[in-house]
């Protein structure tokens, strides 16, 4: 039973991280205001939200299963307060920090209409912090780091996120940048 929980805890962690990577990429694409291939803008917006929610569900499974596992020795406190754990407190603490950030971003995302655009956006910037923290947690805390496939996936994700960030910062990021820089369309 414990073995199964441990295995499930790891798998759900990977799935969650992969989905958060996808969510960050879709968030940036969403912000650019561009449609993608056959997907209209509103679909990208919905996809961004739904993948973020799915990633959060897997994050819940990840933490929940490790809570039930005796090897990880997780305390309920470790889920909320970072850096107190008995097993690799620093790397595990990064996971806790990422969880707290995710909860903040998701709750304010769902209540966007209630709390207003300014508060939503102020909290949503944290999402750029979530990804590196979660990735560092996976690399530092995980027991699969030595495996080739995981490193390959981690490297590919890092390249994708870095490329998306560079694009986000580039002057031609917005769909309408060209027209708004004073050029005739």
């Amino acid at each position: 039973m414990d073995e199964a929980m441990w295995a499930f805890g790891r798998v759900s962690g990977f799935v969650s991280l992969a989905l958060f990577t996808a969510s960050v990429l879709l968030g940036i694409l969403n912000r650019s205001g561009r449609p993608l291939l056959v997907l209209p803008r509103f679909s990208i917006s919905l996809l961004h939200r739904n993948i973020a929610l799915l990633a959060t569900v897997f994050l819940g499974l990840h933490v929940g299963s490790l809570l039930l596992d005796s090897f990880a020795k997780l305390n309920p406190v470790d889920i909320v307060v970072p850096f107190l754990g008995s097993f690799q407190p620093f790397w595990q603490g990064l996971g806790t920090a990422a969880l707290d950030l995710v909860l903040a971003v998701v709750v304010t995302g769902l209540l966007r209409h209630r709390i207003g655009q300014r508060s939503f956006k102020a909290v949503h910037w944290l999402s750029y912090g979530i990804w590196p923290v979660a990735m560092a947690h996976a690399l530092g805390n995980g027991t699969d780091v030595s495996r080739g496939w995981f490193l390959l996936l981690a490297a590919a994700s890092a390249v994708a996120v870095a490329a998306a960030l560079l694009w986000r910062l580039s002057p031609s990021f917005l769909e309408t940048s060209h027209a708004r820089q004073g050029n005739l369309p």
């Binding site: 803008r41 917006s45 655009q117 769909e175």
Partner: peptide, 12 residues
Amino acid sequence: TSCDGRGLCTEL
């Protein structure tokens, strides 16, 4: 004052 011309409404 809020609209940024992102075009979701024009699609819908």
